[in-house]
């Protein structure tokens, strides 16, 4: 259990080690601090967006151990001991991930507010299912609301990445 510190106002802070995008950071957070706020306010990872704060829109999607979750419904103290990936961890140095490139090529970005969550939801899908059907793509992003695109080009962008990667041995394309 993480160390608990108490400040002069008798507020309790938990000292936690948070592994975000491969780096471990030690942070003092209150028990009621939500992961989305800690990422944005303490780590300045503002690519994780707040859209509804109730798990309805998916804007705050991050990957925890590779799985997409709504970081507005996760306590920061609960995230300790897990690997967290935010949109800032998807590209490597200045090189975009194939899915990010595909979003640009397929005009899948408009206002861009849902984009980080969409890309992470898409990444998680393609990691465990490199050649999804269109239905599977739609299902995988159905927890991410977009108001600009009607999802048309987002679905296309995710499928385009799947088409570019060769099917693995034994896998039905």
């Amino acid at each position: 259990m993480a160390e608990v510190l108490t400040d002069s106002g008798q507020r309790k802070y938990h000292l936690i080690n948070l592994n975000v995008n491969g780096d471990t950071r030690t942070l003092a957070v209150k028990a009621n601090a939500l992961l989305v706020n800690v990422l944005r306010d303490q780590l300045d990872l503002t690519g994780t967006k707040k859209g509804c704060e109730l798990g309805d829109c998916g804007s705050c999607t991050v990957l925890i151990d590779g799985k997409p979750v709504n970081s507005c419904l996760v306590l920061a103290v609960e995230a300790e001991g897990h690997e967290i990936t935010t949109i800032e961890g998807v590209s490597h140095n200045d090189k975009l991930d194939g899915l990010q490139e595909s979003f640009l090529e397929n005009a899948a970005v408009q206002c861009g507010y849902c984009t980080p969550g969409m890309i992470l939801a898409g990444k998680a899908l393609l990691t465990h299912n490199p050649h999804p059907s269109e239905k599977e793509v739609r299902e995988a992003i159905s927890g991410n609301l977009c108001r600009c695109t009607g999802y048309v080009n987002i679905v296309k962008a995710i499928l385009a990445v799947a088409e570019k990667t060769a099917p693995e041995e034994g896998e039905q394309a």
């Binding site: 998916g58 997409p68 979750v69 709504n70 419904l73 996760v74 939801a121 299902e139 159905s142 927890g143």
Partner: peptide, 9 residues
């Protein structure tokens, strides 16, 4: 019963 993000949690 729910979308992927919710099902994971």
């Amino acid at each position: 019963m729910a979308n992927n993000q919710i099902r994971h949690m």
